[in-house]
């Protein structure tokens, strides 16, 4: 993987993945909404690896801007070998229950916007007949729970979209990777009390880079979430609905 585009590059997880990819010698095109943060990360990556690093700004709610910024990435890099889509936000579930605007914001950031990027990326890689698309979804998308079902619905929708896309692109030599992190210690979870289930952004970022290199399909990060989610997915609905999760 020589040339990689990262959308939502300033996310703590994506930044760690970018460091791992840069150390492997990849040139990077970083897309993020905050140009100060983007420049800071780009400077870091240049010192660490001497890599070629470009940046561009985007805003998740500008759904039609996705193809424009990806075109920009393609012309800067020449071609794209892999893409990582990482942006997302964790909304306040109670606020989403009472205020559609809050729910809509979260659905756009976590589902619509990644879907917009994936439309361009899918067609680009389909034409190229090789490459990898990796997206950070979440274990929260594996089953709806009362404590975060708006976020869960967006991530669940994203997971399903990626299943379909993987199926479509498998016939064209392109791998599609779904990363499902559990709890990760990042700015997104700054307000949540940390317990033993929390992983570091570094561990999840490195795992993400590894999955991209290998073109894996579905990756729980860290791996112990696979059996946990297997159980959670299989609890019968008549019991599940009574739990406080």
């Amino acid at each position: 993987m020589k040339k990689v585009v990262i959308v939502g590059a300033t996310s703590a997880i994506a930044a760690e993945a970018a460091r791992a990819l840069a150390l492997d010698g990849a040139s990077l095109f970083l897309i993020g909404r905050n140009s100060d943060k983007l420049e800071r990360l780009a400077g870091d990556l240049r010192v660490r690896s001497g890599a070629e690093v470009h940046t561009a700004a985007f805003e998740a709610h500008d759904l039609h801007g996705a193809s424009r910024v990806l075109e920009q990435a393609r012309s800067a890099l020449g071609e794209i070998d892999a893409a990582l889509v990482a942006h997302g936000d964790l909304p306040d579930q109670r606020a989403c229950e009472h205020d559609w605007a809050a729910a809509e914001r979260s659905l756009v950031t976590n589902f619509m916007s990644p879907a917009a990027f994936l439309t361009w990326l899918a067609n680009y890689f389909e034409g190229r007949k090789q490459g990898n698309i990796t997206v950070i979804s979440s274990v929260a998308g594996d089953r709806g729970r009362q404590s975060n079902y708006i976020y869960g619905a967006a991530k669940g929708g994203l997971t399903v979209l990626l299943q379909g896309l993987r199926n479509r692109l498998a016939h064209h030599g392109v791998s599609v990777t779904t990363i499902k992190p559990g709890f990760v210690d990042t700015p997104m979870t700054a307000h949540i009390k940390k317990g033993p289930l929390f992983a570091s952004a570094e561990a999840v970022g490195r795992r993400t880079a590894k999955a991209m290199r290998r073109g894996e399909s579905v990756v729980y990060a860290p791996g112990f979430w696979l059996p946990i989610m297997l159980i959670i997915r299989h609890i019968p609905e008549c019991i599940f609905k009574k739990l406080r999760l």
């Binding site: 800071r40 990360l41 400077g43 870091d44 010192v47 660490r48």
Partner: peptide, 16 residues
Amino acid sequence: LSCFIDFDPQRGIVKA
């Protein structure tokens, strides 16, 4: 505060 800022390879000065 985890980012490198600059490196001068001639003089071996790192800013982080």
